[in-house]
Design a protein around this nucleic acid. Sequence first.
DNA 1: CGCGGTATTGACACTATTCAACATCAGTGG
DNA 2: CCACTGATGTTGAATAGTGTCAATACCGCG
Lengths: 239, 239
Amino acid sequence: MSNAFIRRLDSVERLTKVERQAIAEATKNVQKVGARRAILREGDRNGGAHIILSGLACRYRILEDGSRQITDFLVPGDLCGCDYIAGADTGYSLAALSPCSFTHIDHQSLTVLMDRHPRIARALWSLALINEGVLREWLANVGRRPAVRRVAYLMSELCFRLLASESPRPSSCALPLTQIDLADATALSPVHINRVLGRLREKRFVSLQRRSIIVKDTEGLMSFAEFSGNYIQPRAHDA
Amino acid sequence: MSNAFIRRLDSVERLTKVERQAIAEATKNVQKVGARRAILREGDRNGGAHIILSGLACRYRILEDGSRQITDFLVPGDLCGCDYIAGADTGYSLAALSPCSFTHIDHQSLTVLMDRHPRIARALWSLALINEGVLREWLANVGRRPAVRRVAYLMSELCFRLLASESPRPSSCALPLTQIDLADATALSPVHINRVLGRLREKRFVSLQRRSIIVKDTEGLMSFAEFSGNYIQPRAHDA
DNA sequence: CGCGGTATTGACACTATTCAACATCAGTGG
DNA sequence: CCACTGATGTTGAATAGTGTCAATACCGCG
């Protein structure tokens, strides 16, 4: 009667048993998809939202010239696809980076859920606002930081989010990303990413494997990147 | 009994008279501030949200090295500051670019408003999702587009939002931005912005004034930038 | 076993930055 | 009313950082 999504909502707005149950009911149809598979292609808008329950996915957009910009990573508990519900269409796609399980919730059910349970509505709103904060951080990262810092920062954030539920935070973390993925997320070229990773390896922050990157020293990387998770982690519930 | 914020909410979720009145009541204390003044400084978190009612403002963040990244522009009807309510702290500031009027709504009132009026809650959620879409667009813009296109795109979006309520769209639009503002929004250097603007002036899209930029041909600029407002403008209400 | 995506490395090109000098203008105080 | 000042805008030259191209290596998968 609990999944990553429920835990996420509960972390921003304490939910009652009834509320948790209502969410569980609405998200009970779990689908699975293999690594590197599409979850949602641009244009396929069926009016609902996707919720990642396990694995790592990314949302991206293809620009006019064919280049790809990854705009966010989705970790378990993340919700995606509601901009269509909001009436806009941002033309992105959604793909699994590692094997993922996810659920789909249609517009109608979500509306009912929010109308019946104000705390759920508030929690969803809070999640959207936190997402906004993350996007602002990405914007500043891509816009202003030089390549090495930029990559370090992005990996720090991803580690932070992937490990958010573990305490104490493990010192290592495997990121199922190719160098091309990293390039598309940081807006650098794959060639340059390769060189940047070389430097981060020299500093002993990461080690490289084919199709994945192991962060060996999360503390070191985060401090090098001057990363702080304040914009992600909600305050503890008021006492 | 109507202001830019009410109209904005109403455009994403049709509101009843009672709901509009409740919002009007909560946003009745209007403040004014001159051009180039701070509305909210980093660190001043009093736990509420600001709503821009007239004028143009921007939200920005100062990075470790002192550089500034503008992360969004706020046009009348826009809400800002709720990430703190969501429990996170993204450390930004808010400044007026032109003379602005705005109102402040505290955490408590907002919560009450959402709990009592599910449609308001949904509308706020929708606005947040649309904002997310805009931020993704900025990310792709800053990450992947070359300077001239990038600047053209940003100005297109800003014109689009400033003129959204006017129909037909006027062909010219004054943007109260210095070249430094533009640089901080597009993540380019002021010097380069100056050169880019020279080129856009040659193409007759804009004309330059001290401390402001006049877009003389909104259609031409938008088509040059390959801008489309689909990600901003909500669909018309279902029939 | 070969194929396709990925990773690595070097040489070179190019965009945008930095630095510097100077011009312009609005606002301010004498 | 004028001179001063500080922010903004403009231009050129040199440079740094990253992209592009190309060649090669690697490896999992069919």
